[in-house]
Design a binder for these strands. Structure first.
Length: 301
DNA sequence: GCGTAAATAT
DNA sequence: CATATTTACG
């Protein structure tokens, strides 16, 4: 069953179908949000001001918060809130734990870039538009780099002879797919790629054509790749780190939380939710890791 | 400040 | 071991 889908996917014919399925199978933010909240310790939640369900940020299927290309969202709040009560963690000069780019966050990233246009899609601008607290220019820059590589790879593929229709055997035969590209592809694959990036100008600023085609995301069937299919590693889940993958010390605010920044392994808790597929990666002789699969963000503007 | 490359951590 | 993220350098 799954194989069939993959084969068709390779042909690039059922894009909509798989995409639609994706959305359907995707865990609703609602499902994940509450879950994450539960995981969040009350103490921490209070510190962040998110102890209670945020009225302004808890849309069931929300598409994308309002990232107006003109004004910034008030997500960025000053650290004044915590000034009083029992939580005084210097958010400055503290090393930040790894940031986990969750589909939701990535979606926002893409959205920001789309509105800005490749031309203005610079780390700083993107970061500002995203208005995600805790997000720094470095984070965006790094992600942007990967994003670019992802798009670049797409161009090459669609432009070059591909076809290969036969995915026989393996799937993606040719393809000097760097590890980074593959990974990026994975993450970005399930995300909406603003056509603006591929060949159109964006609203607001005159842009030149950047890419040309938006090829369906081809997921290499490599065993390792499969593992990548799982957005989170066996223990790379943001659980250990909290929601934003940020440790308590150094946290300021989390608009991100409301955004559904992190996505806990719902699959682990809800086996009933069968996403794309949980792939068991068998590295070699006994290396077995199970990963959760969740990705894409819903829709595009 | 942005882009790219390499290093480190998970 | 591979991948993701972080950090340093150009």
């Amino acid at each position: 069953m799954v194989e069939d889908e993959e084969h068709r996917r390779m042909r690039g014919e059922v894009e909509h179908n798989w995409f639609a399925r994706w959305e359907e199978e995707l865990p609703s933010p609602e499902e994940l949000m509450p879950l994450s909240q539960s995981l969040i310790t009350p103490d921490l939640a209070v510190a962040f001001d998110i102890s209670s369900p945020n009225p302004s940020a808890a849309p069931p299927h929300t598409q994308l918060p309002p990232p107006p290309p003109e004004f910034e969202s008030p997500d960025l709040s000053a650290p004044s809130g915590a000034g009083s009560a029992g939580n005084e963690e210097p958010a400055r000069t503290l090393k930040r734990p790894r940031l986990v780019w969750t589909p939701q966050l990535h979606k926002r990233f893409v959205d920001a870039v789309a509105h800005l246009g490749i031309k203005n899609a610079v780390p700083k601008t993107i970061m500002q538009l995203m208005s995600v607290d805790g997000l720094t220019r470095e984070n965006v820059a790094s992600h942007l780099q990967k994003y670019r590589l992802y798009l670049k790879r797409m161009q090459g593929l669609s432009s070059s002879a591909v076809a290969g229709g036969s995915g026989a055997g393996g799937g993606v035969p040719p393809g000097p797919i760097s590890a980074v590209d593959a990974a990026t592809e994975q993450l970005f694959a399930g995300n909406p790629i603003p056509h603006s990036f591929l060949s159109r100008s964006v609203p607001g600023t005159g842009q030149e054509p950047f890419l040309q085609f938006m090829a369906p995301s081809l997921l290499p069937h490599h065993p390792q790749m499969a593992a990548a299919t799982a957005y989170y590693h066996q223990r790379q889940i943001g659980f250990d780190h909290g929601f934003l993958a940020m440790e308590p010390p150094g946290l300021q605010r989390m608009g991100a939380t409301s955004l559904g920044l992190i996505q806990p392994p719902a699959a682990a808790a809800h086996p009933a939710n069968s996403y794309g597929d949980n792939i068991n990666l068998s590295s070699r002789g006994g290396g077995e890791k199970r990963v959760l699969t969740l990705f894409p963000t819903g829709s595009e503007d």
